[in-house]
Nucleic acid binder design. Structure first.
Length: 575
RNA sequence: CGGGACGUGGCGCAGCUUGGUAGCGCGAUUGCUUCGGGAGUAAUAGGCCGCAGGUUCGAAUCCUGUCGUCCCGACCA
């Protein structure tokens, strides 16, 4: 492609709407264009990179036995009502009505549609296992779209669904996808870590996220350097401190004026924070959005509540719970903002962290303004409706597997794999008949990759202060020829020859034949990040050109033919 | 949804405090010079100052509302 003919507009200045590197660079290179908040279009170079990623995904999915299909983005509400997610999914589901007032949504994911396909088409065990996938535009009406392609309302996703006879088959399908994902992200040039994850709104029992490591990433992961433990902090199990062998002491109410926070209470009573417990108060909503009772969650004073673990313990969707209005809640349950403890609380669901069961003589709120109670003990003084691990695993806490101190890192979630089991096949009646004509629900798995988010993650991991540094595999073009002075016939002829030779060799090549000053061309070449660069300039009369890789600082002078050969070799090795 | 900031030619911004009908840099077009790291010069085009009300003789500027955008939080495969 000749740059003089290409639809390309690079920006010299940083658009004020962008903060992080991938967003800034994708806008400055003109690869993406914003339409409205969270909705982006792709210009020629951007679209080529998207297609590169898609092609890598297709190759690996096909190699893993997947079959590509393409479903509509528009989905009828009926299917979502059948699975129960029409109400469970929440406001992120982008709902639309047709002219007759019938409800639809723009698909955020396609479990229902794929389940519907197989329940119609699959009836025999002989048709299983099967894996179907698509690469398609998805919609999620995000509360706060941000960082360009990182969290957008419209995005491209590859979603795959596996269908098996039983859980053993699912384990195998899951393993195959997991390995395919490792290949895909490696080929895209990403540094990533598969981590155990919560299954969220998609549902199911077992899940891994593929996280591209990056400081600007929105997911936080905990991992252990001594063993293989790696999980999102939402998911990571947090070990209880061992049960105390202290004697239970009698409860004692103490006056603790103006001590609303754990720090204040611990300071005032000269207690270790570990000898206190804190209360977090929530209001629960039913599927229609009406208030549906209160929840009080308790963790030790030095711990932090993990909301995901709480909603999982309650077995409700995440959006069905919110911090409670303490005054309103007080009238029903007797809680007192800042002084809430489990003793004296009534008419609400009490959820206690498992660590509290073995702890002894903790200080808790007295449910009375300016009073706390010392020596509160589980079992004797209060009981919980639910006991579960509710804690956030913090850096330095013992690894739940081996006990070594864990570390934390941030990352961009570029893919996730789930074991769904029969979560969809059962309610939607996707059954197959076995050898004995007996019906069984199909056992499903689902596997997603954020294609456009992967593009952003690649840029996050591969850039410098001058621009993008594309890995060969996802670069929009492999080689850029900078023709320093197009008016110089010798230079032009040498550049044209290299351009043609590279194309004949199957290399994707850009020829910068614009009537621009050299500085502009060099700056653009840096910004665009094309991996191999050949500069045709002063040396052209002697048949000499410069060869340079975007990622390297040094350039090499060589003959035009040698540069062409070197470029072909490098591209074929790396693409 | 809560908190904060911002909307002025394609992009980045000034002007607003103290109202008088819009300016700078980049970009674009044309000429001349220049030509290996975002050139110099001269000229030209391009803006109902987000939108709607209000105050005023007069509003980019003050007031109210509204829409949009970004950041933090809430939320989020």
């Amino acid at each position: 492609m000749r740059l003089s003919k290409m639809h390309l507009k690079t920006l010299r200045e940083v658009p004020n709407e962008a903060e992080i590197a991938s967003h800034v660079l994708l806008l400055r290179t003109g690869m993406i264009r914003k339409l409205v908040s969270g909705v982006y279009g792709f210009m020629p170079l951007g679209w080529r990179s998207v297609r590169k990623i898609e092609d890598i995904i297709r190759q690996e999915m096909d190699a893993a036995g997947g079959q590509e299909i393409h479903m509509s983005a528009v989905q009828p509400a009926e299917l979502w009502q059948e699975s129960g997610r029409w109400s469970a999914y929440g406001p992120e589901l982008w709902r639309v009505k047709d002219r007759n007032g019938r409800d639809f949504c723009l698909g955020p994911t396609h479990e229902e549609i794929f389940t519907d396909i197989v329940r119609n088409d699959i009836s025999s065990h002989r048709q299983l296992p099967m894996n179907l996938y698509q690469i398609q535009t998805k919609y999620r009406d995000e509360a706060r779209p941000r960082f360009g392609l990182m969290r957008s309302r419209e995005f491209i996703m590859k979603d795959a669904y596996s269908f098996d006879k039983d859980y053993e088959g699912l384990d195998e399908s899951y393993r195959i996808m997991y390995e395919a994902y490792e290949k895909i992200f490696s080929r895209c040039g990403l540094t990533f870590r598969p981590v155990e994850a919560d299954s969220g709104a998609i549902g199911g029992s077992n899940s891994h996220e593929f996280t591209a490591l990056s400081e600007v990433g929105e997911s936080e992961i905990a991992y252990c350097e001594k063993c293989s433990m790696a999980a999102t902090t939402e998911r990571a199990e947090c070990k209880d401190d061992p049960a105390s062998d202290e004697e239970m002491l009698p409860m004692e109410e103490v006056n603790t004026p103006e001590t609303k926070t754990i720090e204040e209470v611990a300071d005032f009573l000269k207690l270790d924070k570990k000898k206190t417990m804190k209360a977090l108060l929530f209001v629960k909503y039913d599927n229609d959005g009406n208030e549906n009772g209160y929840v009080a969650a308790f963790v030790r004073g030095d711990r932090e509540l993990n909301m995901i673990k709480l909603v999982n313990a309650l077995d409700i969707p995440e959006h069905a719970i919110e911090f409670a209005d303490e005054e309103k809640m007080s009238k029903v349950t007797g809680c007192v903002g800042g002084f809430t403890g489990p003793v004296g609380l009534h008419d609400c669901i009490i959820v206690a962290d498992s660590e509290l069961v073995g702890a002894r003589n903790l200080c808790a709120g007295a449910c009375k303004e300016n009073y706390h109670i010392k020596n509160v003990n589980y079992g004797r003084d209060f009981k919980a409706d639910i006991v579960a691990d509710l804690k956030v695993l913090k850096p330095g806490d013992p690894c739940p597997v081996c006990g070594a101190p864990v570390k934390h890192a941030r990352g961009i979630e570029v893919g996730q794999v789930f074991k769904l089991g029969t979560k969809y096949s059962e309610p939607m009646k996707a059954f197959y008949k076995d050898e004995n004509m007996k019906d069984h629900p199909i056992v499903m798995g689902c596997y997603g990759i954020g294609v456009t988010r992967t593009l952003a993650a690649v840029v996050e991991q591969h850039h410098d202060e001058n621009g993008i540094i594309w890995p060969m595999s996802v670069a929009p073009y492999h080689v850029i020829i900078t023709l320093v002075n197009p008016a110089d016939e010798t230079q032009a002829a040498v550049a044209e020859k290299i351009y043609e030779d590279l194309q004949k060799a199957g290399v994707e090549v850009l020829l910068d034949d614009r009537k621009e000053r050299p500085g502009v061309k060099f700056k653009d070449a840096d910004l665009l990040g094309i991996p191999v660069r050949i500069t045709v300039g002063k040396g052209a009369a002697e048949g000499r050109v410069e060869y340079k890789l975007r990622r390297d600082a040094e350039k090499t002078e060589m003959s035009a033919d040698a540069a062409t050969a070197e470029a072909v070799k490098t591209v074929n090795e790396e693409k």
